[in-house]
Amino acid sequence: MKTDILISSLYVFALAAFLGYQIISRVPPLLHTPLMAATNAISGISLVGSLVTAGAEHSTLSTILGVIAVIAATINVVGGFTITERMLKMFQDKLPSDSPKDSKDKKEEKHS
């Protein structure tokens, strides 16, 4: 493996690490659970590695490993984004301005 590939990979790693630090420190504790689910979904990007392994037909064993990896990574991607959306929907539905109306509706339901 050539050294310049290693160097450029390390560049990408260092910059991503710096950027990650900057972005993630701005996420409020309120959204830490969605953040974990979301980063988990995004790291399901290892799917792209699995796809090549599953489709390359190097050997039967490597195809089997690849397919299991595709399944596992897809569970993460699809599951991760779905559950993040489920959580964030709950946060978004009650923006401070909407919430009084929201609770009024609830009360009316109860009285009826």
């Binding site: 993630i24 790291s43 792209v48």
Partner: peptide, 18 residues
């Protein structure tokens, strides 16, 4: 594969900061 490095690092750092 750069997209793997970037996404993995973002995830790794997020977990580390948390």
């Amino acid at each position: 594969n750069n997209v793997l490095i970037i996404a993995g690092t973002l995830d790794g750092f997020s977990g580390f900061i948390l």
